[in-house]
Amino acid sequence: MKKEYVFLLNVILLLTCIGCATPPASTNLLYQRLGGYHGLELITNDFLLLISRDKRIVDHFNETDISIFRQRLIEHLCVVAGGECDYQGESMLNAHQGLNITQADFDVLVGHLITAMKQNDIPMATRNALLARLAPMYGDITYQ
């Protein structure tokens, strides 16, 4: 089976588990504007689907355990958005060490994240507020 399809299958399997996690309480505005924990799950699911269908980027995830990656991504977005989640992953710098993420890869991911947010009807101001917090991570993520 082609790697993209393995990835896609993993994503689809995971989607059947939406709502399994308990949303932590939070009063943070951006976190809430993104739909809270469940909203971030939906955005992340769409984001992973977009990645799985993109030949430019999918190979970077060949060695990735998608269920763990998904969980860390949700936690990370939660923390970045000011939610009270416990991010159990590594720092952005350490997590991307040796992966040789290029600017083009990063641009692709940003594009897919914007699309995923749009698919979940996240308003422009909320999208931009999240991008404002994610954009400075460029230096830690690329060319490591």
């Binding site: 308003p123 422009m124 101001a125 909320t126 931009n128 507020a129 991008l131």
Partner: peptide
């Protein structure tokens, strides 16, 4: 500049 004026870049 993201989210600079009324949520706009």
């Amino acid at each position: 500049f993201f989210d600079a004026i009324a949520g706009r870049n």
